[in-house]
Structure formats: structure tokens, C-alpha cells
Design a binder for these strands. Structure first.
Lengths: 223, 223
DNA sequence: GGGGGTAGGTTAACGCCGTTAACTTAACGG
DNA sequence: CCGTTAAGTTAACGGCGTTAACCTACCCCC
């Protein structure tokens, strides 16, 4: 019984700790996680965790790493519903990005928190994860003529910044409702705003008929 | 001597504490600030701070509030260099946003950190601060015909999200250099990327000559 | 001008935290 | 059967935010 218990636990404590830490982060954020609280959930003393993780930061790092992998899978699944080269595929990635973040709010905050030591976050995203995914979608879309011919990395950063910024701002605003925040328009859900961005993303914020020439009679109407 | 010392200190301890907290945040981030470290800088015992601030969170809240005011002034100054209604004014706000954040990096992180209790950040920005400023610039630009006729709040959120997201991502990436982050393009300084976004902001990422009609002979070249 | 109130400060202490050190225990290999 | 080793324990340290109890110097008012 207790004989094997320890042995079996051996390998499992590590995974159990990662699960417990994930749950604690998801429910209470960074401040809800302590070595002692993780240990209690696992049913082990706090110091036992140091057999598996160098320190608290390392533990969180492992959780974050896992989280990014899961995040990447989520994005992949969303992208796969649309054909390569299509603009819908690009858009779906953005919406999935938002969706994941909103569904796993406090967890997501930790993933992208700047205050957990710092390295991860982008080490893990780019190639295996979301960055490469979006980049490929953009490259394909450019090739297919759905996106203007431009440096794909610029386009990727443009889209990523836009989406991530919307999310960050919305979250600081406690998502969904934020009455005292300017006019109510802004408090609309991130998803609504994201859709509203569609026109700007496609065609920009400049009036339709400028760009050095005119077509419809601006500035005096030459017709 | 010590008689007046205490009395004079009285009013000043609060300000001194705010200054000390700001400096500690700027140099060591959130983790570099403790009630004891602030107290030590002020030359007072830690518990004395509780005469002026309900708790640590309140202290940080006051610092953040101050910071946003300063941030707002910075943006205002940048905007004032360009005429109302001009697109340059809008752009200048974005560049100032970036500039302030980069100059005061760890301080900025705290301002927009999600993990310091949470209310502030947007309570304080919108009306007195940056949001109202940007909004007015956008409204003026729309009126002047520099920006397409659209819901100004949507435009504001679009621009703000884009800029803030770029910043957030760049910072998570330790700003400036981040070799392992995809192709090197992305590691360009936020300011460079911001400039690269100009075309997309103005005209979007869609190819120039679609939108239901053509102008220059795409898709086969009708010339 | 002497006495209470009070503002501003102190020290001591509590419970939590991350982490280290020293120890126990149980399984396994020779 | 013994030594080694992996896995886990308890005890403890220093630092944290915060509370409680106390001190003390000033101000105002009778």
C-alpha cells in the first residue's frame, strides 16, 4: 500500500503539482499560488516540491510552457476550419486568440504576465505555437492575393499587436463592462470591437478616396 | 530640532513615500517594492506608512494615479506640436505613447500591470488623460476629412489597441533585441515597427485594388 | 499655565511566504 | 544483509504585509 503509494506518487507528484498550479493560477491568479498551496492540493509537504522544481518560478515556468502549447493547439484547431490562403483563416486565428483568452481569463493573464521572471511567453509561442501559425496564414494569404504584398512579419505584428492590445486593454478594464470608461461604446465586448476593426484592418482608417488622387469630388469637387 | 522635525515631516512623509515608491517601482518593478523598503527610504518605520495609506495596494494606487497624470501630460505635450484635425497629431500621440513607455519601462509596466489590484489604469486615463486626448484628435481628424467617417470610439480603440499591443508584446520580449523570436524582423524596435504599421493603418492590409472594382489592371492586367 | 486630545511615530508580534538543512524512511542492487 | 539512493518529512530562517499596544510631543482650551 504505502509502499507502492510512494513509488507511484513519485512520477505523478510532478504532474499533479503542475495540474494543481494550473488550477490555482486559473482561479486565483498569480497571487493565489504558493508553494504551500500547491503542495496541499497534491497532498504532500511544500518542500517536497523542490525535488521536482528548482523553485517557484521554475514551477510556474513549466505551467506557462504547458499553457502555451495548449493555446497553440487551440489556435491550430480554429485555423484548420478554413482553407489556407483565405482571409477567413487569418480572421479565425484572431477570434480564437480572443476566445481562448476570454475563456481562460486569469490563466491567460499569467501566460502573458510580464511579472513571472520573464523569459517564456514568446520563446514558446513563436515557432511551435501561435506566431508561426499566424505567419504561415499571412504568407499564404499574400500569395493568394487576399493580403497586400508587404513584409509578412510586419503584417503579422500588425494583426497580433491589434488583437493582443485589445485584449490587454479590455482585461485591465475587467472585460465586458467598464462603465466609467469613456462613452459606452468602448465597453462593448472585445469580440464586438474586434469585428468592428474588420473594416480598418482591411482598408485602413483613411477616407476611401484619397491616396494622392480623388474619385468622387473631395476638396471642392472637380466634377 | 527633533521637535519640528517630526511636525515638518508630518505632511512630507506622504509625498516622500510616494516618491520613494515610484523610484522603487521604476528600478525594481513590483517585486522591488515592499512597505519596509519604502519606509527605509523615507527614514521612518514601516508601520508609520499606514498613517497615510490604508495598505500597500492603496500606496501603489496613488503612485499609479500620479503616473497616469504624468503620462497624460506627456501625451498632451506631444499632441500640441501638431494642429488639430491633422493626422500628424494622431500619429504623434501614438509615438509619444511608445516613447513614454520605453523611457519609463518598468514604471510603465506597473501602470498597466493587471496585477496590482486592478481598478485604476483606465479610470484615470480616459477623461483627463490619454483616452480623451486621442478621442478628440480622432474626432477632429474625422471632421477634417483626414480619417474616414466611422465611429470615433472604434477608431480610438483600433489605434490604442494596436499601439498598446505592440508595446506589450515588445516588452514581454525584453524590448529591442529578442533573437529567438521568429525571424529577426520582429525584433526591430517597437518604434520601427510602429512606423511600418503606418501603411496598414491608413490603407489596411487588403490589396490596393480590390473592394469590388479595379483600377490598375490586377488579375490579368487589362492595360 | 497646566491638562487632555490627538497626530505621528515607535516596537513587538502574528501568520504567511519561499527556501534551506538535517533527518527519516522505504525500496533496490550486489 | 547491507549500502545507496530516491522521496518525503519536520524545523527553521529571514522577509513580507499588517495589527495592536504603546509612547510622546505638540496644540488648544479652561
Amino acid at each position: 500500500m504505502t509502499v507502492r503509494d510512494a513509488a507511484v506518487r513519485g512520477a505523478d507528484v510532478e504532474q499533479a503539482a503542475l495540474d494543481a498550479a494550473r488550477d490555482l493560477l486559473a482561479s486565483g491568479g498569480l497571487e493565489g499560488l504558493s508553494m504551500r498551496s500547491v503542495a496541499e492540493r497534491v497532498g504532500v509537504s511544500a518542500t517536497a516540491l523542490y525535488r521536482y522544481f528548482e523553485n517557484k518560478e521554475a514551477l510556474i515556468g513549466r505551467v506557462v510552457q504547458r499553457g502555451f502549447r495548449q493555446f497553440g493547439d487551440y489556435l491550430q484547431a480554429a485555423a484548420d476550419q478554413y482553407p489556407r490562403g483565405s482571409m477567413e483563416r487569418v480572421r479565425a486565428l484572431g477570434e480564437a486568440y480572443l476566445g481562448f483568452a476570454i475563456e481562460n481569463q486569469s490563466y491567460f493573464r499569467v501566460l502573458f504576465s510580464i511579472h513571472h521572471g520573464g523569459r517564456h511567453t514568446l520563446d514558446d509561442l513563436p515557432e511551435g505555437g501561435g506566431y508561426g501559425l499566424l505567419r504561415q496564414a499571412v504568407v499564404d494569404a499574400i500569395a493568394a492575393g487576399s493580403i497586400r504584398r508587404a513584409d509578412p512579419d510586419h503584417v503579422v505584428m500588425f494583426l497580433w499587436s491589434l488583437t493582443h492590445g485589445l485584449l490587454t486593454i479590455s482585461m485591465a478594464c475587467n472585460i465586458e463592462h467598464c462603465p466609467e470608461f469613456g462613452p459606452e461604446t468602448v465597453s462593448r465586448s472585445p469580440a464586438d470591437l474586434f469585428r468592428a476593426f474588420g473594416l480598418f484592418v482591411q482598408h485602413g482608417i483613411a477616407p476611401d478616396n484619397v491616396d494622392g488622387e480623388e474619385r468622387d469630388g473631395a476638396k471642392g469637387g472637380s466634377a
